[in-house]
Write a protein that binds this DNA or RNA. Structure first.
Length: 961
RNA sequence: GGACGAAUAGCUCAGUUGGUUAGAGCGCCUCGUUUACACCGAGGAGGUCGGGGGUUCGAGCCCCUCUUCGUCCACCA
């Protein structure tokens, strides 16, 4: 049912019909109006776009109609398009970063749908081991309990309840953004199938020899009480003290060795001091001992190349239990490992009675005090060094020796080739280097976490047997047949060891070689959109997981294998959203606006447009609400242009016109003028620009092309220029059709970024029927558009386009002339144009009515170029050169000749400068002989035009006397 | 200590292989209730493209160097 049909209906009918008819401006207004005033009042279109109702209504309709559901079609593999949403923490709430991360995939997905692709955008959440467990434990503490009070099973039960109650809010919030995800395929890393996949990946890697268990130095978080991977440690510069100490040499009483440290509290754990073997200062001491001050014990002086001779005194205290490098030195010299700290970062009994029980930082101060009283402290000086912090708990991590599971990454070479051979492409490309550097220096991945919330490691140990002997282990998806003799590993897997399967498991992957229709159809996925901060944590690991787990086991992969196994083809990295001062947005700073407030204030479309337009390619984004307001303003502009289209058709109601063909049929090519040609040409060009921009992830160009076409070309010029002809019954239908052509195509181009308003207007302007959706309609290509126009008799004329440029420049010059004489507001100006040639004369003549309206003039009289200007109405009147000739503003008697002279003189000087540089350039032999002809021609033309202008202005100045 | 990025109008940024007089939005100034839009329209001011060298007929763009800011990587205690 089209607009024209129900437009005449009584509003009451509309209310009754609202489920079955096309939502339109009018129906919506009728509803709005009905709620505000009596329903008998004639509906009035609101001047400003009110997004909230529109957005809620359309989102529900899309869901009801199953618009976002994607089904594979094995017969049409070329139509596959898939994006996996980077899973937010299940307990997280929407923040600014998510907005951009999800707007871009939505744009890509919606555009793909328009192009007829079977576009899947798969949403989901991450169980977020540490984060979620901490939240639940915090809740427990409120009632005075710990997880140990509950026990593992009960705790997990509580966590599940908590997750189900508070989790997933973020996905609901994403719906407000307009995210067109296939919600039926929503995934979660702790779903039963997903969990099975995670365990299968572990078991597979174990049996392939890539997983081992060992006692190693790991990054220990004393708050979360778990080991962490290197990638979860954030280095931060910290201000502290550097303690310079002296230890007495055992074999040489009275002689001392100077040693520096930042961590005196670990002294009880020292089991040696080390010097560089080639350090002449100390070679004679190697093998001797020093007195460790507390507890007072002799410890050996060893030689190790790891020691930096130039740093401090060149002597290093070796604490194998509390430092990675020291551990290595300890291993090499078979030093005892003395662990003086508890898992929670307090000192234990081995640290001696004074320190035992103290927190590590309090212990540090006390240790320094002890050094002082013992006479070991030479000096303490302020010092800044880098300290590793736990990403989650934000406390310094403690290097700690513990039993952990590690992955030795498979397919590293292939992972590099995936990028270097272009199977996976990063945008911007510069991230390649970061990725490759990481792979080139890759370290084994500590994947066990001493937590309960997560995938429990599928390893059982024979009771009472040595766990490090593989013969005593059962590694499988299911427990051993005689469980009473076995005990399962207590640890769970790193969350990233589940999310690295994010491109596989949600599509149904359960084990290598096995596949599902969805997996077969959409894997490898089309694109991934995420932040560069998780290149290592997630992106690189997903690539490795894909290469290792997709398909049958294969040790070495060919390029074809790689192409088939990579998880995605393109990765778009967006910048991090910062506040206006450039600070990272964070809860503690309170500088992050609530996205839902923004939706409320500016509409989801406005937020999407605004965000996209301020997102520089690959750079961080400085957020400011003003920018978002621009997005809203754009929606409002669009809304009003559509309103104008409706109102302009007062006497000829808009028709339901589904297709370009139907619109074209309403055009009478014979009455199309330069402006019509120009706007249609711009429409075609804009279409091409946008297609290229979207294909290249160039969202800057996408938005600026949208903006430029619609605001500048269409609204500011074309709509204004077409007003007089819309009043004329003979031209009106053609003009309306061209408006429709532009609006229809523009809505299609804008739809991916502003889904709600475009759907609303597409329906209310009658471009499709109620039961179809803009998401399934593809904008014609620029080429096709031109061809269709040509075949309905409207071959776009480049001359006409050039004429419009002249008219626009002429109009600007005329308005400027008026403004300079404080006549801007007047609509009764009298103008005289000395048309510079017959073509200019014709142009000004045929467009006279339009120009008068646009400039605000009652007359523009035309005169031959050679007219004598020394008499009225020319002399003593202000004038300006225009592309069509000299234009005079007839305000005889009121002109301020002094001011006018000043203005013209200024302009003359500007032109003289241009002429000088132009002449210099053209008299440069090298330029003339070497520059390409086009450039040369351009330079000559420019010079002659400038000279002509110069002559004219000179003449005007002389006329002023 | 390495690597990468940034520096263009008061602010935030465009500027695709070097090529006519370097653009946009916001902000600012002047004017405007013209029958879509003041979330608007018209006009205007404002830039030695971070500094210094170099290549070229020609450099915002290419090369070298310096400065400032930012990010990532790294076992100097």
């Amino acid at each position: 049912m089209g607009v024209s049909t129900f437009r005449k209906e009584h509003p009451v009918r509309l209310l009754c019909l609202e489920k079955s008819i096309s939502w339109s401006l009018f129906s919506m207004l009728a509803t709005n109006a009905a709620s505000r005033q009596t329903i008998d009042t004639a509906p009035e279109i609101p001047k400003a776009y009110e997004p909230q109702a529109v957005e809620a209504r359309w989102y529900q309709r899309w869901l009801d109609a199953g618009c976002f559901r994607a089904q594979p079609d094995a017969a049409r593999p070329e139509r596959a398009h898939a994006i996996m949403m980077p899973p937010p923490n299940v307990t997280g709430v929407l923040h600014m970063g998510h907005l951009l991360n999800n707007t871009i995939p939505d744009i890509l997905t919606r555009r793909a749908r328009q192009e007829g692709k079977l576009a899947l955008w798969l949403p989901g959440t991450d169980h977020a081991g540490i984060a979620t467990q901490s939240r639940v434990e915090k809740e427990l503490r409120k009632i005075g309990k710990t997880r140990h009070d509950l026990g593992r099973e009960k705790f997990i039960e509580t966590a599940v309840q908590w997750r189900d109650k508070h989790g997933g809010i973020i996905l609901e919030q994403l719906k407000k953004l307009g995210a067109s995800c296939d919600w039926d395929r929503k995934a979660h890393t702790l779903d039963p199938d997903y969990s099975q996949a995670v365990l299968q990946a572990f078991v597979t890697l174990y049996h392939r020899g890539y997983i081992y268990r060992g006692k190693r130095m790991v990054n220990w978080c004393p708050v979360s009480l778990t080991g962490l991977s290197d990638e979860e440690v954030i280095m931060k510069p910290q201000r502290g003290l550097f303690y310079r100490m002296r230890y007495e040499i055992v074999e040489m009483p009275g002689q001392f060795l100077e040693i520096g440290t930042t961590r005196p509290e670990t002294i009880p754990g020292d089991t040696a001091v080390a010097v560089h073997p080639d350090d002449q200062r100390y070679t004679h001491l190697i093998g001797k001992h020093v007195w460790r001050p507390f507890p007072r014990t002799p410890i050996p002086i060893v030689a190790d190349t790891l020691v930096e001779r130039d740093f401090g005194s060149g002597v290093l205290k070796v604490t194998p239990a509390h430092d990675k490098a020291d551990f290595e030195i300890g291993q090499r010299h078979k030093l005892p490992v003395l662990d003086v700290m508890n898992p929670d970062g307090t000192m234990n009994d081995l640290a001696g009675p004074d320190l035992a029980g103290l927190d590590r930082f309090k212990a540090r101060a006390l240790a320094a005090q002890k050094l002082r009283t013992l006479g070991n402290l030479i000096k303490e000086e302020p010092y800044e060094n880098n300290v590793g912090f736990s990403e989650r708990a934000d406390v310094p991590i403690e290097p700690r020796l513990s039993e952990q599971w590690f992955i030795k990454y498979p397919k590293i070479d292939e992972a590099k080739r995936a990028l270097t051979s272009g199977h996976v492409r990063f945008h911007p490309e510069r991230w390649n280097k970061v990725y490759l550097h990481w792979l080139n220096n890759i370290q084994d991945w500590c994947i066990s976490r001493q937590l309960w919330w997560g995938h429990r490691i599928p390893v059982w140990y024979k009771k009472g047997a040595d766990r490090n002997d593989p013969a005593n282990r059962h590694v499988a998806l299911t427990p051993p047949p005689n469980p009473e003799n076995w005990e399962q590993d207590n640890d769970v897997l790193d969350t990233w060891a589940s999310s690295w399967l994010w491109c596989l498991a949600p599509l149904g992957w359960l084990s290598p070689g096995q596949t599902t229709p969805a997996l077969k159809y959409w894997y490898p996925t089309t694109a991934l959109v995420t932040g560069p901060d998780i290149i290592f944590l997630w992106v690189a690991r997903m690539i490795i997981a894909g290469l290792e787990f997709y398909g049958e086991e294969k040790t070495i992969l060919t390029d074809d294998d790689i192409r088939a196994r990579i998880p995605f083809h393109d990765v778009y990295f967006n910048g991090i959203i910062r506040d206006a001062q450039g600070r990272k947005m964070s809860k503690s700073l309170g500088n992050s606006p609530d996205p839902l407030d923004l939706f409320e204030k500016f509409g989801a479309d406005g937020v999407r447009l605004g965000l996209l337009s301020i997102a520089p390619k690959g750079q961080d984004i400085l957020f400011s609400e003003d920018r978002i307001a621009q997005g809203r303003n754009f929606c409002n502009k669009l809304w009003n242009a559509a309103r104008f289209r409706q109102m302009a058709a007062k006497d000829s109601p808009p028709q339901l016109a589904n297709s370009i063909g139907q619109i074209l049929a309403r055009i009478n090519p014979g009455i199309c003028d330069a402006d019509d040609h120009a706007i249609l040409a711009s429409l075609a060009t804009t279409t091409d620009t946008i297609s290229n921009a979207l294909a290249n992830f160039d969202f800057n160009t996408y938005t600026s092309a949208l903006y430029q076409f619609f605001w500048t070309d269409f609204c500011d010029w074309y709509v204004e220029a077409s007003k007089p002809r819309l009043q004329d019954a003979t031209t009106c239908p053609t003009l309306l059709a061209i408006h429709d052509l532009c609006l229809r195509q523009f809505l299609l181009l804008l739809h991916p970024v502003a889904p709600f308003i475009t759907e609303e207007l597409y329906h209310s302007l009658g471009y499709c029927s109620a039961d179809t959706y803009i998401q399934n309609i593809c904008p014609e290509s620029g080429h096709k558009l031109r061809a269709m126009l040509a075949s309905s008799g409207l071959q776009l004329n480049p001359d006409a386009i050039a004429q419009t440029t002249l008219l626009r420049e002429f109009t600007t010059a005329a308005r400027s002339l008026k403004a300079q004489q404080n006549q801007a507001a007047r609509k009764d100006a009298h103008l005289h144009l000395l048309a510079k040639d017959p073509a200019a004369h014709t142009l000004a003549e045929t467009n006279n009515g339009k120009l008068k309206k646009l400039i605000g003039a009652t007359s523009i009289e035309l005169h031959p170029a050679e007219t004598d200007t020394s008499t009225p109405p020319f002399n003593a009147n202000p004038a300006t050169p225009t592309p069509l000739g000299i234009l005079f503003l007839d305000i005889t008697g009121t002109v301020d000749t002094t001011a006018e002279k000043k203005r013209l003189t200024r302009e003359l000087e500007r032109l003289e400068k241009l002429i000088t540089t132009g002449q210099a350039k053209l008299s440069n032999e090298a330029f003339v002989s070497k520059a390409p002809p086009q450039i040369l021609k351009g330079a000559r033309q420019q010079l002659s035009e400038t000279q002509a202008k110069h002559t004219e202005i000179k003449r005007l100045l002389n006329a002023l006397g």
